[in-house]
Amino acid sequence: MALRPDYVIRETATNLKRNLTLTFATVVTIAIALTLVGASLLMKQGVTHSNVRFRGDVQTIVYMKSDASPDQIDAVKRALDASPHVKSTRYLNHDEANAEFKLIFADEPAIRDSLTPAETPTSYKVQVKDASFEVVQSLQDYFKTLPGVHEVIAPTDTVKKQEDSFAKFSNFSLLFAAIVGATSLVLIVNSIRIAMFARRREIEVMKLVGATNWFIRIPFMAEGLVQGIIGGAVGIGIVFALRSWLLPTLVSGGGIWAGFRLTVSDVQQTGFVLIVAGALVGIFGSAVAATRFLDV
């Protein structure tokens, strides 16, 4: 049957206007649920980024100065091999170091292309036998003093703690988001049912003159879709705001947040997920509401 777009738009707009308070409540609930989903997704991505350098059981990285001489580089290598705590080492030359740098900053072209291979500091990735805090700390203190060494960094306990607390936080917020998400589904169902109840006479007439159930249902589904998409958009707004204002403060405050990074494309991907989730919640909720109403 021909369902004219202008008819659907007109009906949807009328429905949304008629139940403005309920529409508002629904949108806010969806927005909160999706903000939580978005925040926990970004939390996971942020942690992944902050640990990319330490992949493969690398516990310590010795960064050489970019102008370190081959002798200095060899001396560090010998010192590492001589150390009783070191299990193995791997040397990243200029090209390899640059490739890794590009990987870390893949989403930020300005930074990614700022270094040539020659300018990129080379480094030793060190696997430590007994990765206790004290051992790593002592290695760090010792190698920092060697000529040609720029910096020694170790994830030590901080990264471990950071990972644990982020994992807990992100699991908790996912759980919370699921609860709020279910609530917003119920709210959508309720809001559509009220919209349908307000128009039961019209629906009765529609059924009497032979309108199909889909014809009656689609404007209500469009209403749910609009609510879901607006909710998703508000959720994205909040997530973006958190990233731009709250995150820099947290990161600069140090602690477990130091090294926590999010790229623009992370936020964009999460935004896409939020919009799709909002749309699905909206359509599904209103389809359920409409079906239960029409079956009577």
Binding site: M1, M206, V209, G210, A211, F215
Partner: peptide, 9 residues
């Protein structure tokens, strides 16, 4: 309305 809901042009 009666014609609209049965999809008449």
């Amino acid at each position: 309305f009666a014609l609209e809901v049965i999809g008449r042009p």
